[in-house]
Structure formats: C-alpha cells, structure tokens
Design a protein around this nucleic acid. Sequence first.
DNA 1: TGAGAAGTTGACATGATGTCAGATACTACC
DNA 2: GGTAGTATCTGACATCATGTCAACTTCTCA
Lengths: 233, 233
Amino acid sequence: MSTSQAIRSRPRILPQPVLKLAKSERTRAAILDGALEFLWEHPFRDMTVNRLMERTSASRPTFYQYFHDLHELMECLLDDLRDDIMAGAVPWFTGTGEVTGLLRQSLEALVRTGYEKGPILKAVADAAPNDERLETAWFEFLSHFDEAVAARIEEDQRQRLISELDAAAIARALNRLDAYSLIEAFGQHPRKKPGPTLGAIERIWISTLYDWRRRDGKTPLIRRSDELTAASE
Amino acid sequence: MSTSQAIRSRPRILPQPVLKLAKSERTRAAILDGALEFLWEHPFRDMTVNRLMERTSASRPTFYQYFHDLHELMECLLDDLRDDIMAGAVPWFTGTGEVTGLLRQSLEALVRTGYEKGPILKAVADAAPNDERLETAWFEFLSHFDEAVAARIEEDQRQRLISELDAAAIARALNRLDAYSLIEAFGQHPRKKPGPTLGAIERIWISTLYDWRRRDGKTPLIRRSDELTAASE
DNA sequence: TGAGAAGTTGACATGATGTCAGATACTACC
DNA sequence: GGTAGTATCTGACATCATGTCAACTTCTCA
C-alpha cells in the first residue's frame, strides 16, 4: 500500500526546510485536517474513529493518543470557529459612527464565515447533544456571543440609539436566529446562496434594534465612543 | 421479580371494563409512554432500547416489533408535537381583526406549548442529526411552519399590513428563532421562566413584521378576511 | 375447549468503542 | 555516525449497544 510509503517519504521532503514540527504535532494536525476534510463531505453521524483515521497514515488507537474521543476533537474545531466569528463582529461591537452600517458590516462578516465554515458549524451543533461536555461547550459558545451582544445593546441604549427592551433575552433570541439559520442554509451541500439569508437576518436585527422604518433614508443613528458615554455619566 | 406478576395481573384488572385495547396497542402505548417519561427526566443521549424497555413490562426485542429503531419512535413523538403547535397558531394564521393582537395570541400559545413539551421538543431536535430519516422529518416539520408563516406574510402584504420583504426567508429565520429559543429555554430541567422568552419573541416578530414603533398606541392594523382580499383582486 | 394467530423472548452476530502491553521510530547526545 | 532512551504507534482484547432470529408463550375466537 502507498500509505506506508507516504509516511516515510513525506518527512524526507519538508522536515528541515522551514521549521521542524515535532512528529506528535504533525500527527495531531493530520487528524484535525482529516476531520475537517471528512466533515466537509459527510455529516457528523457518519464519522467514526475508524473512518477518520483511514484518511490519516496512522492507526485507530493513535487517535486516542491525542483525543479522548470524537467529541473532544469537535470541541477543538469549535474553538477555532469561535475566533473566526468573533473577529467578524468587531465593527458593530466596538465601532463608532452610523450604527446600522456597522451592524450590517458585522452581519455580513458573520454570514460569510457561516458560508465558508457551514459544514463544520453544523457538525459541531449535530455532535453537541450526544455528549454532555460538548453540549456544555456549545452552549457556552453561544452564551459568549449572547453576553457580547447584550452588552452592546445596553451601551447603545445608554446612547439612546436603542429603545427600551430586555437586552439579554433579545440578544439570546437573535443569536439563535443567526446560528441556526446559518447551520440550515450552509450546513450541508449543496449550500444555499447567502443572499436571502443575509437579507433576512439584517432586516430582523435592524427592525428589532434600530427601528427599520425610521432608518429609511432619514435621520441617521450615530454612535459616539463608549468611553465618552461612560465619562458623561 | 414482580414484573412477571404485573404482566399477568394487569390484563385481569382492566380488559373488559371500559374498552378492550388490543394487546399490541397496549404494548405500543406503553413504550411511547415510557419514552415520554424517560425523556422528561433524561436527555435523549442516555436513552437506549434497553433502558427504555426496562420501564415497560416487556423485553428489549419486543421494542423492535413496534419500531424500527429509536429514531422511528422519535418520529412518532414529533408527529404529536406538530399537531399541538399548529393548533396554537390558528389565531394569527386564520383570524381577522387587529393583527398584532392575533400574533401575540399565537406566539403566546406557541411558548406555552414549548414550555409544556420542552424536553420532548429538545429530545427530537437532539436525536435528529443522528439519523437521516429523522433529520429529514425534522426539517420537514420546520418547513411546514415556514410555508404557513410565509403564506400568512404574503397575504398580509397584499393587505398592506406588512411592507416589502422576502417572506420565505424571513419566515424561515423567525421560525428558527422560535424553535431554538424554546428548546434552549425549556428543553431541560430546570426550565427557565417563560416570560422573558415570550417577550423577546413577540418583540422581534412584531418589530419585523408590523413595525413595533408605529404600533405604539396609534393607528391599529386591521386584517380583513383573506377571501375579501382575493375577491377584490 | 382447543387450534391458529398474535405477541414475546433468549440467544446470537455485528460493529463501534476505549485500553493495554509490546513493538517501532524518532531525537539527541557522545 | 551510532546508540541509548523516550516519544509515538500498533495489534489484540474486553465491553457494550444494536438488530434479528427461531422457539416459546399467551391471547382470541369458533
């Protein structure tokens, strides 16, 4: 078989050149890559340790050297997602100026990330209910955004940009809307076109938070920096 | 063990009295009841055919006489849910008069049902990703509401009660919001209080569809019957 | 009451999981 | 450049849930 040849020849080709990854790091990365590749093509329910490791040049027991089980591996993928998604939200979370524009920017980045990582996002959401630890991690992942969004809403309320509403509850609801809309639209091939999903999400967020109708070309809603607000209290 | 005694004595006690359920019907019902009971206390991931049938007075293989596997059983529970939820939505789907009131009624019924059946709803959603058939059924369950909501939106648009927007996409997004908000708030014990969840859902639906601000005591939005609208075209 | 059907069961084959102790390959030191 | 010592890998095992028999009860109805 060519696998044993591959494992022997690959180190010869790029071990010294750039940087010498310890073998363990290489194996671990290979497993994670294999998982990403697998989940891009198949749903999580079809992934077994066996099938995953067949794509690697290592054997099944080797998997357990690196991960306690498949769910722990999914937790690693989830951590990567968190960073990607958080990064895109920066404009609305911390920006100043016309708020609906900031929000649109952030939501657009969110949908783009969802589109690019759809199958992985779905895989994590699919796997979560099967394992208590992963389920907890998934809920914490969501709450993380809930809190960030709620904080942002409250700050904009202080600046009179958002009217009276239960920031925490609204944040939670809007985030579930995003998460599961993305999962369903982009979670499996063939993915839907991102346009309608983005349109709906934008419309709902803006209607709810910044009063869609009033925004129709008239008086813009401008956000000052948070520090100024805090200082003026 | 008392099980064999129970299985023998129960038929003696209530077979003739009221109505004679065929034995098979009784067993099937017992399994479904056992499942409901189990899922009320434990997450789906802890349910095995073994543990389920221990609550029954029948043995494990008997389960397979009635259901192909656990997922088919979950599909039955899902069918029950569909009816419950659809029933509550009637006011907004088919009523006439002040629309935000109708919508509030329907959403309140939805949240009530979600509160009462939370763990079952969560169990179905949890189980769905593990089985292709059930996943399809779950998506059809959701699409069913998507289509009903989209149709209602389009009709209200014809009546100038809702402004221009992508009815199908908005319906889908709002339904995901509902479904997963309910699952998370009421899916496991201890359940949250329904108030904040209902408040957030109402606020978002009304802001998005009927322009929350404008509704603030001013001109009411009145829906005529659909037939009139159709006739006037 | 007894013959046939409906319902139930113990026992089996399969396939996935997680864990060893032993074998192998890498690393670094001399 | 060879070798000691360790990091990494593997074959084989025990366990558990699943789904399917053929054989056995228990019901039903004539």
